[in-house]
């Protein structure tokens, strides 16, 4: 249950300086990552514009990246805990590069779709429906 109350103390400035008084830890980054991830998922689910869906994917990847970097950072860990070190940063780099490639391919698909259907509304991409 403490896990549920902890965010309250974390965001609420009523408790003295609140979060501003001490340096952030991995959890803080994980929260940001989670919010970005969820925003991305919701974005993918609700947007009907193909490019909106693409932006959702970027957000999801970015949320994951925040987590990788947070786990990789030696500063954010509690004493004694071992960070994943370089692995996290390297994976983040790979994710960024792959996201660039993914965006290019997805854009190509979108533009082709637009050429063939004269729309970018993904709900109308139902040619293969049985």
């Amino acid at each position: 249950m403490t896990a549920m109350i902890a965010p309250l103390a974390w965001v609420c400035p009523v408790f003295g300086l609140g979060p501003l008084g001490h340096p952030p830890g991995v959890s803080h980054y994980l929260v940001v990552g989670a919010i970005l991830f969820v925003c991305g998922v919701v974005c993918m689910a609700t947007k009907r514009n193909a490019l909106g869906v693409l932006m959702g994917i970027e957000l999801v990847l970015n949320g994951a990246n925040v987590n990788f970097v947070a786990f990789a950072s030696p500063w954010l860990q509690a004493d004694g805990a071992r960070s994943i070190g370089l692995d996290g940063q390297a994976i983040a780099v790979f994710v960024i590069v792959l996201a660039a490639a993914e965006a290019a391919v997805a854009l190509a698909i979108t533009l082709n779709f637009y050429n063939n259907h004269a729309t970018v509304d993904v709900d109308r991409a139902d040619d293969l429906k049985g």
Partner: peptide
């Protein structure tokens, strides 16, 4: 759906003690 997912992730993120408390390493 997003809210549910967020709750799940937040619980996971905040439930590990060493993650919440940064160390003294500058």
């Amino acid at each position: 759906l997003g809210g549910a997912l967020l709750t799940l992730l937040l619980v996971a993120a905040l439930s590990v003690e060493p993650w919440r408390r940064p160390g003294s390493v500058g």
